[in-house]
Structures are given as C-alpha cells and as structure tokens.
Amino acid sequence: MVRPVQRNSLIAQVTTMLRHEITSGKWPVGTRIPTEPELTEMTGTGRNTIREAVQALVHAGLLERRQGSGTYVLSDSPVSGALATHLAAAADRDVLELRQALDVTAAALAARRRTPDDITTLRDLLQQRRDLAAQGNHEASVQADIALHRAIVAASHNALYVEFYDSLLPIISTTIHAHADAHPGEAPHYDPEHERLVQAIINGDPDQASREAQQFLTSLIDQLDG
C-alpha cells in the first residue's frame, strides 16, 4: 500500500535539496537564489512548501531575506551561518575592530604565502575596484572592495580565516552600505591605501602589509567615531 507523502516530509525533502545547492557551491555565498516561482518550477512543489523550506534555511543561518531585493546565500556552513546571524546585531565599531584583528594578521600571512594566482587576482580586483569607483558605480564598487579584502584573506591560505571571514561578509556589506547612505557622496574611496596594501603583499613584505591594513582600518574606525 502506497502512503501519501506527508507535508512535513515534503518540506524536509525540499529543504535538503536547497541546502545541497548551497553547500555544493552551486549557489555561492553572497549570491541571490532563484525566485520563488523559479524554485517552485525547479522542485515541482507548491509555493507554500518553498516558503517553508527557505524559511528553515533562513533560521539555520544559510539564507538571508532582503526586503525588496530577494533571498541571498548568507553562508554555506550552518556553523558560520549561525555566527553570521549573531553578528548581524553587532555595532559597526565592534565589527571594524574584529576586522582589524583579522585583516591585519591575514595581510601579513598573505605577504608570506601569496601565489602567482593570488597576485593576479589581487591586481585584477584592485583595478576593478578603482574603475568602478571612478565610474560612480557605488554598488558594484562596494562588492569589488569586499571581494578584494576577501581575496587578501584567501591569500593567507588559512582555511579557518577564510571561513570566519565569509561569515562576516554580510555584516561588512551592510556596514559599508549604511555608512554610504548616511554620508552620500562623502565616503572616500581609499584608493592609495588599497594600492599600498596590495603592493606590500605582492612585494612579499609582511611588516608593511600589516601596517597598511592596520592604518586603513584605524582610519575607518576614526571616521566612525568622528
């Protein structure tokens, strides 16, 4: 005798399917997932099932709903996702000070461990950041800025640093956007600071790289206090 599929079981199945799209990397951290109608078509289920499956992943810290924009991948790990959810309520200064502790050490490690591929990535992202800022494309330049700092952490070749930094990315992005909205047209691009930081890493100078990262983030904290 065939038993009908229980609704809760169906939600669990769809939740597992969506979680796999995230953890497999098909939906990378920071990207927007397909829309509700698209997910309905992909899974062959109803909208209510999709809503509850997505909500389960929001509670797990893997997804984040953004009003008027869509649903985005917050993390590909339940552990770092839960951490990201906790950090979402942190004060801007606390986030910057946490970044200061992480970015300074990561910059020094990157200067010691960067590979030719890392150098190419850093140069490309630095140029992309510079070009987008010059074009006045604020949203894209913010994303390029975040990608550059994440690439520096990745060049440290410390997997734990990268995972922890990824858990910070949503709140870092929120902090940058909030500051820009509060000071329209006033936020400096910090192009020289980023160029010196990247060049120190390329030169393999860990002391200079850590100093540049320290000075840059200290200036952000000072600006926040001002």
Rank of each mutant, 00 (worst) to 15 (best):
Met42Pro: 01
Asp225Tyr: 12
Glu52Lys: 15
Asp222Gly: 12
Ala200Thr: 00
Phe216Trp: 11
Pro170Trp: 06
Pro78Leu: 11
Ala107Cys: 02
Thr71Cys: 15
Glu41Val: 12
Ile33Glu: 14
Gln135Thr: 11
Val162Met: 05
Pro170Ser: 15
Arg196Phe: 04
Asn48Cys: 11
Leu125His: 06
Asp103His: 11
Asp191Ile: 14
Ala154Pro: 07
Ala147Ile: 09
His20Ser: 09
Glu36Ala: 04
Leu126Tyr: 08
Asp103Cys: 04
Leu39Ser: 03
Arg150Ile: 12
Gly61Asn: 06
Thr120Leu: 10
Ala88Ser: 15
Gln67Lys: 04
Met1Trp: 09
Val162His: 12
Ala159Val: 09
Ile152Arg: 01
Ala101Arg: 12
Ala89Asp: 13
Ala144Met: 06
Pro170Tyr: 09
Ser167Met: 05
Ile11Ser: 09
Thr115His: 04
Arg130Asp: 08
Ala182Ile: 01
Glu186Lys: 12
Arg130Met: 07
Glu139Asp: 08
Arg114Ser: 07
Gln128Ile: 13
Ala200Asn: 07
Ser173His: 10
Trp27Pro: 00
Leu168Gln: 10
Ile22Tyr: 08
Arg51Met: 08
Val29Asn: 01
Ile119Gly: 02
Met17Gln: 14
Gln6Ser: 07
Thr115Met: 00
Leu63Val: 06
Gly44Cys: 08
Thr31Phe: 03
Ser167Asp: 08
Ile201Ala: 01
Val79Asp: 10
Leu62Gln: 10
Pro37Asp: 07
Ala209Gly: 02
Val54Thr: 05
Asp117Glu: 14
Ala53Asn: 10
Glu52Gly: 04
Leu220Ser: 05
Ile146Gly: 00
Ala101Thr: 14
Arg123Cys: 02
Met17Thr: 05
Glu193Asp: 10
His189Glu: 03
Arg129Trp: 06
Ala106Leu: 04
Val104Gly: 03
Arg19Leu: 15
Asn137Asp: 06
Ser24Ala: 11
Ile11Asn: 01
Leu57Trp: 01
Ile11Leu: 04
Arg99Gln: 11
Ala91Gly: 02
Gln135Gly: 14
Glu36Val: 13
Leu220Asn: 07
Gln143Cys: 06
Ser173Val: 13
Val162Arg: 03
Met1Leu: 15
Met17Phe: 14
Gly70Cys: 02
Gly44Met: 07
Asp103Arg: 03
Glu64Ser: 12
Gly204Arg: 04
Gln143Pro: 02
His157Phe: 04
Val104Arg: 11
Ala155Cys: 00
Ile119Phe: 01
Asp76Phe: 09
